[in-house]
Simulated scan of single mutants.
Amino acid sequence: MIQTVPIGTVANDAVERLLDRAFGADRHTRTAYRLRAGTQALPDLSFALVEDAALLGSIQCWPVRFDGDDGTVCPLVLVGPVAILPERQQEGLGRRLMATALAAAGDGAPLTLIGDPEYYGRFFGFDAAATARWRLPGPVERHRLLARGAQVPGGPGVLGPRLPVAAPA
């Protein structure tokens, strides 16, 4: 029986091995990793699928922020990576993880991701309408930078990590 569990209940090295298998060992060079640099995955929005103690898939969500050229600041959640064991893909497991994370985020939450617009648009309502003038800390195929949610900014600005605020000394 496949169970959805908080990702924190799964060994980190197992998640890392899954991500290597799903995306390759060079995955750390991608722009998405720059977007979440220095942050920790949001535990309430990050999940794993396990079956008989074996990790089948994972989704992680990360705190990012949009700094608009007009001075507005908008906290967002970067969804992904969504990783499924290659031999278990096409079983709907990724869709199950996405649905779980989106439900945990709540309706209207400002979300962004880098992914296939046909898939994420069709099943989850993401599109590139608001992101056309966003700047990122690395290259991105513009049509793959997607967002959804009522609070998603549509103007020009920079998307980057939402670092924790340091306590005053």
Rank of each mutant, 00 (worst) to 15 (best):
residue 102 L to H: 05
residue 121 G to H: 11
residue 117 P to L: 05
residue 93 L to E: 05
residue 89 Q to L: 03
residue 55 L to Q: 11
residue 46 S to R: 11
residue 39 T to W: 06
residue 81 P to N: 09
residue 44 D to V: 15
residue 115 G to W: 10
residue 96 R to F: 04
residue 109 A to S: 03
residue 39 T to E: 14
residue 69 D to E: 08
residue 118 E to R: 07
residue 59 I to M: 04
residue 60 Q to G: 04
residue 79 V to R: 02
residue 57 G to M: 09
residue 63 P to W: 12
residue 138 G to D: 11
residue 138 G to T: 11
residue 32 A to Y: 09
residue 112 T to I: 14
residue 63 P to G: 09
residue 51 E to H: 08
residue 135 R to Y: 06
residue 75 P to S: 09
residue 138 G to E: 10
residue 80 G to M: 12
residue 121 G to D: 14
residue 122 R to S: 11
residue 135 R to Q: 10
residue 35 L to D: 03
residue 99 A to K: 08
residue 68 G to I: 07
residue 45 L to W: 06
residue 131 T to M: 00
residue 137 P to Q: 08
residue 74 C to G: 00
residue 51 E to K: 12
residue 94 G to T: 09
residue 64 V to H: 06
residue 44 D to I: 15
residue 102 L to K: 02
residue 42 L to F: 05
residue 38 G to Y: 11
residue 121 G to T: 06
residue 94 G to F: 08
residue 38 G to D: 15
residue 111 L to N: 01
residue 86 P to H: 08
residue 119 Y to A: 07
residue 124 F to D: 09
residue 125 G to W: 09
residue 103 A to N: 15
residue 121 G to V: 04
residue 76 L to E: 05
residue 35 L to E: 09
residue 45 L to R: 06
residue 118 E to T: 09
residue 46 S to A: 08
residue 137 P to W: 07
residue 74 C to V: 09
residue 106 G to V: 15
residue 45 L to F: 08
residue 120 Y to P: 00
residue 45 L to K: 04
residue 47 F to R: 07
residue 50 V to G: 00
residue 39 T to S: 05
residue 62 W to A: 13
residue 51 E to Q: 15
residue 45 L to A: 03
residue 64 V to A: 08
residue 91 E to D: 05
residue 108 G to V: 13
residue 87 E to I: 06
residue 101 A to Y: 05
residue 55 L to H: 02
residue 87 E to T: 12
residue 68 G to N: 02
residue 135 R to T: 12
residue 106 G to P: 03
residue 92 G to Q: 13
residue 61 C to T: 11
residue 71 G to W: 12
residue 89 Q to V: 07
residue 117 P to W: 04
residue 53 A to P: 01
residue 38 G to F: 14
residue 75 P to C: 15
residue 47 F to E: 10
residue 85 L to I: 13
residue 121 G to K: 05
residue 73 V to Y: 00
residue 107 D to R: 11
residue 112 T to N: 01
residue 127 D to T: 01
residue 71 G to Q: 11
residue 43 P to I: 13
residue 107 D to A: 15
residue 132 A to L: 00
residue 56 L to M: 13
residue 61 C to E: 06
residue 85 L to N: 01
residue 99 A to R: 11
residue 91 E to L: 05
residue 134 W to G: 00
residue 65 R to E: 15
residue 99 A to Q: 13
residue 79 V to T: 06
residue 58 S to R: 07
